[in-house]
Design a protein around this nucleic acid. Sequence first.
DNA 1: GGGTCTTAG
DNA 2: CATTCTAAGACCC
Length: 734
Amino acid sequence: MDMDVEDVDEDETNWHSICVQTSQHTSVDCSNDDVPPPKRVILHFDMDCFYAQVEMIRNPALRNVPFGVQQKYIIVTCNYLARDLGVTKMMLVSEAKEKCPQLLLVKGEDLTHYREMSHKVTELLMSYCPLVERLGFDENFMDITAMVDRRMEQSSESAGCLYEGHVYSHGTCPAKVMDNPRLAVGSHIAAELRAAIHSNLGLTGCAGIATSKLLAKLVSGTFKPNQQTTLLPESVQYLVGSLSGVHKIPGVGFQTAKKLQALGIVSVQDLQHFPLAALVRDFGASPAQRIQNLALGIDDTSVTPTGPPQSLSNEDSFKKMSSTNEVCQKVEDLLSTLLDRMHKDGRQPLTFRLTIRRHPEANKWFSRESKQCPISKHIGQKITSGNGDALNQLVALAMKLFHKMVDTSKAFHLTLLNVCFSNLQASAAVSKGSIASFFRHQSPEKASSKCQGDLGLLPNRLDQSGSHVEGKMQGLTGQEESPWRPDARCSLGIHPPSYSAQPSPEASLEEGSRGGPEDTMTTTSVITLLPPNVDPDIFRLLPVDIQKELLEKANVPSTRGHQTGGSSASDPGETVNPSHHNLSKTPVSLAHNAPCKPNDSITSTAKDRKETVKGFNRQTDTPSTYRERDVPVASVQVSLPDHPEEERWCTDLRSLSQSADCGFPGNVDPTVFSELPPEVQRELLSEWRQQRPVLKIPSSSKKLSKSPLTRERKAPEKSRQANNLLNYFKPSSD
DNA sequence: GGGTCTTAG
DNA sequence: CATTCTAAGACCC
């Protein structure tokens, strides 16, 4: 997991955060009109040090101390206090301790809480628009083209607004800014979504707004903690040209980079200009075209809704395992927890796989070996129904597979075991309004719901994903009640769980603005009413009275951001880093001689407001305002009582605007929640559980047609849903 | 469909 | 370099 690549990335930030001040006369920007209007508007979200944030929500006391999340002997990620002290992701625990003796460590091998929070983020985003694709636990892509179009149709005002957050640029003329109104609108939507994630889930993160997944991802980390950046078409070449090497291109991993290097290709420019035919020889036509396009900043792949996981696995690594008994015991442990997850998921696995890793001595180049086999229907049923017999039978099955790989009559030395269920089959359908339908992928025809209906109108490109869209829409449509009704929720700052609820039509911000009376309640409205120099994100966290005050004096003199020349504490210097040879390699014909501060890259207005906010923001607290209440914490390690299910309570998007009173708008403030007495938490959880929709559905996928480049596929076609609800309502449906 | 390789976080 | 603990897709038989 290096999912944590995310954050800090010391060096990576450099390249992208470079900003060049182009001299007035560059051939690029300012006067070109040959830049075609963006077709799609794609967002990329990347949570800040995700695991660490989840841990801080579970235990607010952690916010005040430097700590790292440890998996075995590695610090997989850490909070910002730890970063300030020199700790980085993927650092050895021993090294981190030397560097920072007071570093606290939180065990992170159990991914349960991270996984759950990860899905909440995805589901929250899906409630606004179904086109959400997950990338690991902490990143999501979203195609908001339809949302943007709708907003532009209904409100002419949008044309007049500026970008929210930063604009990646090396000196674009301000005038140019408005030549990309769709991206500008996209930046506002991104800001609202980040605000929603923050208010509903208590998480901060970065967003990138661009015309493709590639570009959105590349630009999102430009300004690191908790900020967003929009990439304009005229800056694309500069951005890709700034990458330090081909390995920085998403999709070009170690092996590919190695092969490229063998061809003398090291820089992105090398790859851009290398004869395609030669690449084809080494990589094959499709991959060759693909990687060269990526180097050129071209990416046609669509955002493919991820849907429920296609496999569930559990693994553990260790120094040495050399007896069958140990293996058997470990397999049992792994299976036991995996079975719990499988049971909650509700789907029935048709395939079981056991994977091992042998000690890197005999077994060459490190690798894993696996054996898999079908799961009999009989056992499969026990798995889904939670029958305890399943464990024993699966352990036996696993051992059979184990013996196929390892000759136990000889010495062996394993360093890892993994058990995996795949080929997940959804069981019977659930009631129509169920959440399950939310994840369902099929249902052709009707796409009536509002939110979705719009999607149906997608002008461009979504053709291929049409099927998914429809499927999702349907789910949405199915949504019958309106969980988000103001009255119902809020009893405790909480409201009905709603996985499903989110998808509900009204969930969409714009929807509201479109015609409904509820417009006024939408996040959108709220945000747009904020004083120009206030970050909606922060605003929301302020006490109501302060909010009022700010609204009254909308034009308070903005303090010059501290953030300014520097950027956040996290990586200030780097952004300005003088040593950007990259610059010189830039293909673009600009005079980018003068690197400038990050700020410069922003249009003045946008910039000003961002910065002011930032300064404000940074100190006060980025993450959670509510945070510190004192919770009796025995040790920093203490955390919530473990309830299996605290998972899915969800939120109501639209309630954002009222968040102030409820503690959380339609939702629960995670921090607050964590501070409630365990009994109360449990009670709430069980209440939520009754309706909570739970997961995603199965999706057996088949292939549809293919599109030329890149993978497009994913939409499952048939699938019914398996939903946890089943477990609650239908004891043992098969 | 089984199994490996690659990429990714 | 991987290291951790996952998850997915491409591509072989």
